[in-house]
Simulated scan of single mutants.
Amino acid sequence: MYTNPRVMNELGGILVDHAEGTAYLDPGSELHDQAIAGAFGVVEAYSPVPIAATLDEWRARKLASLAAKRWEVENGGMVVGGMAVFTDDRSKLLINGAYRKAEKDPAVIINFKSAAGWVTLDAATAIALGDALFDHIQASFDRESVLTAAIVAAATKPALDAIDINGGWPANG
């Protein structure tokens, strides 16, 4: 069963992939079991079924996929000075806490667990890390904003399909 709520929605035994515009019977649902038992005639449980949609519906799907992509990039980590750094929500809080402490106490030494292991940060490095985190997050939102404007402006389905939501993002680490 698909469990990523950003990509799939479960609707009474039907999984709808908004990004792809397809629907599947949920293998764990009663509807699936009835279909396999022949209650609805011949049904292939995993065959994609195209979903007819208006341009606004396709636009909404693309915007949802875009938001998921931004979240993925924003939270996918970064590399700062050769150090791989987590950027999930908890890590953002810890980095911002280190940043605030370093601003108040220039002599502070912070033990910090990066994606590659333990490192010791002095105040200047903690501040640089916080600045890099802000830049990474802001670049993610900036890219989403540019792509959102393009998606909203797309006047046709082919124009909408031509918008690449996977390129131009800040690097992950």
Rank of each mutant, 00 (worst) to 15 (best):
G13C: 10
I14M: 15
I14P: 00
I14L: 14
L15T: 14
D17R: 05
D17T: 13
H18E: 02
H18M: 14
A19S: 03
A19N: 05
A19E: 05
E20D: 09
G21M: 01
T22R: 05
T22F: 03
A23E: 07
A23M: 11
Y24G: 01
Y24A: 00
Y24M: 01
L25W: 03
D26I: 06
D26R: 09
P27H: 05
G28Q: 11
G28W: 04
G28T: 06
G28Y: 02
G28F: 02
S29P: 10
E30N: 04
E30L: 07
E30Y: 03
H32T: 13
D33P: 06
D33C: 12
Q34L: 12
Q34C: 10
Q34H: 11
A35K: 11
I36P: 02
I36F: 11
A37G: 14
A37Y: 11
G38R: 03
G38A: 03
G38T: 01
A39Q: 12
A39N: 04
A39D: 01
A39C: 05
F40A: 09
F40I: 10
F40T: 14
G41C: 10
V42E: 00
V42C: 08
V43R: 13
E44R: 00
E44G: 08
A45W: 08
S47I: 09
S47N: 14
S47Y: 13
V49K: 02
V49I: 07
I51Y: 08
A52R: 15
A52M: 12
A53G: 03
A53W: 00
L55W: 09
E57M: 08
E57K: 08
R59W: 02
A60T: 11
A60W: 04
R61G: 08
K62H: 08
L63H: 02
L63E: 00
A64T: 01
A64Q: 04
A64C: 04
S65H: 09
S65R: 02
S65I: 07
A67H: 13
A67N: 08
A67M: 05
A67Y: 04
A68R: 00
K69W: 02
K69P: 03
R70E: 09
W71T: 13
W71Y: 13
E72L: 12
E72V: 07
V73W: 01
N75T: 07
N75S: 10
G76T: 04
G77S: 07
G77P: 00
M78D: 08
V79L: 01
V79N: 07
G81N: 11
G81M: 11
G81F: 15
G81D: 08
G82F: 03
M83R: 05
A84D: 12
A84N: 10
V85F: 00
F86D: 10
F86E: 06
F86W: 15
F86T: 02
T87K: 11
D88W: 03
D88K: 12
D89M: 12
D89I: 11
R90M: 14
R90C: 09
R90N: 12
R90A: 10
S91W: 08
S91A: 15
S91C: 15
K92R: 15
L93D: 12
I95D: 00
I95Q: 02
I95K: 02
N96C: 15
N96T: 14
G97H: 12
Y99Q: 06
Y99K: 06
K101P: 11
A102M: 12
A102K: 00
A102P: 13
A102D: 01
E103N: 09
E103H: 11
K104R: 15
